[in-house]
Nucleic acid binder design. Sequence first.
DNA 1: ATCACACTTGGAGTTAACTCCAAGTCAAGA
DNA 2: TCTTGACTTGGAGTTAACTCCAAGTGTGAT
Lengths: 129, 129
Amino acid sequence: MMIAEVSEKLDISQDTLRYYERIGLLPRVNRNQSGIRDYSEEDCRWIEFIKCMRSAGLPIDVLIEYVRLFQQGDETMEARKEILIEQRKQLLKRMEDMQETLERLEYKIASYEEKVVKAEQTLKKPEEV
Amino acid sequence: MMIAEVSEKLDISQDTLRYYERIGLLPRVNRNQSGIRDYSEEDCRWIEFIKCMRSAGLPIDVLIEYVRLFQQGDETMEARKEILIEQRKQLLKRMEDMQETLERLEYKIASYEEKVVKAEQTLKKPEEV
DNA sequence: ATCACACTTGGAGTTAACTCCAAGTCAAGA
DNA sequence: TCTTGACTTGGAGTTAACTCCAAGTGTGAT
């Protein structure tokens, strides 16, 4: 698969794909005989994985380290697992914080409902009298 | 309250507090007779609110608009409510995405558990025989 | 009175994460 | 053969969100 197709399919710009590879956020992609990237299915799964983790807020440097360990082979499995466990913990924390914010938003929205109703009643009164 | 105290109490740098005010993310803070910011309790509640919303990922420009409307008075209540409702929707969406990512992380961790165990067994075998 | 210090402002600098650009290569079609 | 267009690279530019800086001011202690 060439870069245009992957970019289209996974909705990530070609520049970003090249950038991610440059900084080690993706394992190096194979080139064909004329030096052009030829993405494998595995490459695509990586890209999709990275995109998903990034969108949930996992830091780039952590993911780079994860990719680096992955490329070193099976003896780094334990270390990679630890990274994921730590990131799960931090993700849970963020989700809890967001839950609190959500509740706060709910509360504020509810109090606007009330205030808006009151304001409407106030406006109405002159008409009623 | 002066800026040092607020900064300390809410754990936001003085520079950030001034920056937020500059870009309209906080209503203008009153100054005392010598031009120094004197934060009221209400100011502090704003700062805390903004900090909370920002940490949940609400965009700065949306919050600036919210503050702007707030300063225009009660006739903007409906508009402010709509902003909060839209932001609640987007927050929920982000939380759902994060939930999916979390599950994916869980799955990956679980499969590492398995693989690590297998690898250990493979290592053990020679000893067992 | 003068020194230190916490504050002020406008503006410059920094960092992360892209995003764009220029110059060059290669393969395919007119 | 020439042109077109998708790709390559290294490096420069951009944007958001701070963060820092320099020059200046007001207040309180020595």
